[in-house]
Design a protein around this nucleic acid. Structure first.
Lengths: 145, 145
DNA sequence: TTCGGTTACTTGCATATTGCAAGTGCCTTT
DNA sequence: AAAGGCACTTGCAATATGCAAGTAACCGAA
């Protein structure tokens, strides 16, 4: 890449990302799904930020429409519902972790232990892989129950 | 990292990031500053998304308060104003680029050339470094004028 | 020195989005 | 058959946004 290639086209990937993640609630729901293993409406409602029920329903359907989540019957109880992450949202993990690393560095009140940043700087790919494995573990357990 | 260490604390770095980037307009302004070399109110207004003047003023001051931008007199014309990226926002670049890579992969209408993803996958650190150098070049040129 | 143009905003107002509380319909459990 | 949980929906007041217009300071040219 040399300095003649001015990246004017950058606008678009960023706008695409902003359309999904440039919303506080979608962002936090993605965290719940990708990092906290949450899969149900009830679990999302329980997050400390206190999303209200209408906004939650709205954002879940938005995320479904955008191909980030799939809405399926809960294998444990047919009357209940699960939202599973798609490959598209799993592929968002590196970006999400990258933002967390940045936030950990600048948030004076961070609750993230030093070991998080350390393990990422020692082995970024391994850290991402660990989260991916957790997601798969959660979803396989759920789907086979 | 073993699977006993369940990362409950993840909520917070993500919430911190969501507080800044979980807003469409802040997100796009960061793009303009970090990727497009924009520094003035007038330049931000010119972006294709069409931010309105009151929202722009509001977000610039929010980003300044959050330590992402500094508001300074324009060295070219004292009556004008420049918004420069701080180290904090420059350190956000890896996360931003990571989101762009993801968006490029999933946006069917992406305008990003294949060479962008290629150069990132060949040499991620080098790609980030290139953007950092561009930012420094822009700001040094501006400040010494 | 005054006048038009530019820059960086602020203000007012109609519309859209949010937050909160309450309600609905469909299971499931007892 | 009744009670409760789950996943929403609805209504309404409060807040935020988008748009158009206005303002204040400065700058360069005539």
């Amino acid at each position: 890449m040399n300095s003649n290639e001015k990246p004017e086209w950058n606008g678009c990937p960023t706008r695409y990302a902003a359309g999904i993640v440039g919303d506080k609630w979608c962002f936090l729901l993605l965290r719940d799904v990708l990092l906290h293993g949450k899969r149900t409406y009830r679990e999302f409602l329980g997050s400390p930020e206190g999303i209200s029920t209408n906004i939650l329903a709205n954002r879940l359907s938005k995320l479904e429409t955008m191909g980030m989540l799939t809405r399926e019957a809960d294998p444990r109880k047919a009357s209940s519902v699960c939202y599973f992450p798609t490959q598209k949202s799993k592929d968002f993990l590196p970006a999400l972790v990258s933002m967390m690393i940045w936030a950990t560095q600048y948030d004076e009140a961070t609750e993230a232990p030093a070991s998080f940043s350390e393990s990422y700087s020692n082995d970024p790919a391994g850290t991402i892989a660990w989260y991916e494995a957790e997601i798969d573990r959660v979803d396989q357990a759920l789907r086979s129950s």
